[in-house]
């Protein structure tokens, strides 16, 4: 395996670079080479920028999922949260442009609230997050069906859609810069800065060893709850972009939670917490999207996507388990 040989050769480097993004970068480069061989047009700036814009939601979800996973928990609720947000947005806006921005705020608040509930149930009631967020997943699915009587109602406005669809046109060199990409860049920088802050370092420490963290004065429950809130917020932003790009349906967020988890693991983040960087997680998402694009170019059926995702997550976890146990 490429990842493995690369990671072994770079082992001494990784010791000082706990982010460990070199393996995923290597995979990404290999995939880019394969894409270039098959479909050179894809790498032209305008097409590449569109690709990045389309990938922005899953990359943001991966960043959100990263906060939760690195703190030692899971968030399975983000997929259905995205669906719920898109459906709710359509019904609340109901094609009335004046409601666009208030509803965006409502979505962000709603995402944060769902994260807060996930976090508090997990940390204060000691329900394993796997169960908490699976429960939340089902509750959201059911609630959205109930609230919309089985079919999405209302509609989104052009203002709402422009974030997911439009771009800054005629930019030199790049051609066009999708708004989604700009949103992604701003939030990615914010995520990196957050992970360098006291909160970020403490978050990883909590995932690594919650006992030690607690005995050093960390409020473990609070730290983890904030991670869930960040994941909920990421889902809200992803929902805004997906709603704009894809439109309103009960399938809007289907399977995204699993995609985000796969991306995070692919990016070298250890399940169980304590290791890996947010940049790795985001690159993992990008790699996953690129892999799907590549499958498309080679004429592999899109129906295989879930199987590929499943295989990747198993492989990535197995490789990382070997890495940790061999030390």
């Amino acid at each position: 395996m490429t990842t493995q040989t690369v990671s072994r050769r770079l082992a001494p480097l990784r010791r000082w670079n706990s982010g460990g993004i070199l393996p995923i970068l290597a995979v990404l480069v290999v995939l880019l080479v394969l894409v270039a061989a098959r479909q050179p047009d894809f790498l032209s700036p305008p097409s590449l920028m569109s690709f990045l814009g389309r990938s922005a939601p899953i990359i943001l979800l991966a960043a959100g999922q990263y906060f939760v996973i690195v703190s030692g928990e899971f968030d399975l609720s983000v997929g259905s949260l995205v669906t719920a947000q898109v459906v709710v947005a359509a019904r609340l806006i109901d094609s009335d442009p004046s409601r666009t921005w208030p509803v965006v705020l409502v979505l962000l608040a709603g995402g944060a609230l769902v994260g807060l509930v996930n976090g508090l149930i997990t940390t204060r009631l000691r329900v394993p997050s796997f169960v908490t967020t699976l429960g939340m997943f089902l509750i959201l699915v059911g609630a959205v069906y109930l609230w919309s009587d089985g079919a999405p109602k209302g509609g989104l406005t052009d203002q709402f859609r422009q974030l997911g669809r439009r771009a800054v046109e005629d930019v030199p060199v790049f051609g066009r810069l999708p708004y989604a990409l700009l949103v992604l860049l701003v939030l990615a920088v914010a995520a990196v800065l957050l992970m360098r802050s006291d909160f970020g370092r403490t978050l990883v420490a909590v995932g690594d060893n919650p006992r030690t963290a607690q005995l050093s004065g960390v409020r473990v429950w609070r730290t983890r709850t904030i991670a869930f809130v960040l994941s909920g917020l990421a889902a809200a932003v992803a929902a805004i972009l997906i709603g704009g790009y894809g439109g309103v349906s009960f399938q809007a967020g289907a399977g995204l939670e699993f995609g985000a988890i796969t991306a995070v693991v692919l990016g070298g983040v250890a399940l169980g917490g304590g290791r890996g960087s947010v940049v790795g997680a985001m690159l993992g998402a990008l790699t996953l999207e690129l892999l799907f694009a590549l499958m498309n170019f080679y004429g592999v059926s899109g129906a295989l996507r879930p199987s590929v995702q499943g295989a990747i997550i198993l492989l990535a976890v197995a490789v990382s388990a070997r890495r940790f146990s061999s030390r």
Partner: peptide, 9 residues
Amino acid sequence: GEGIVARQS
């Protein structure tokens, strides 16, 4: 178990 955070710097 309670003193260090093993994988951090």
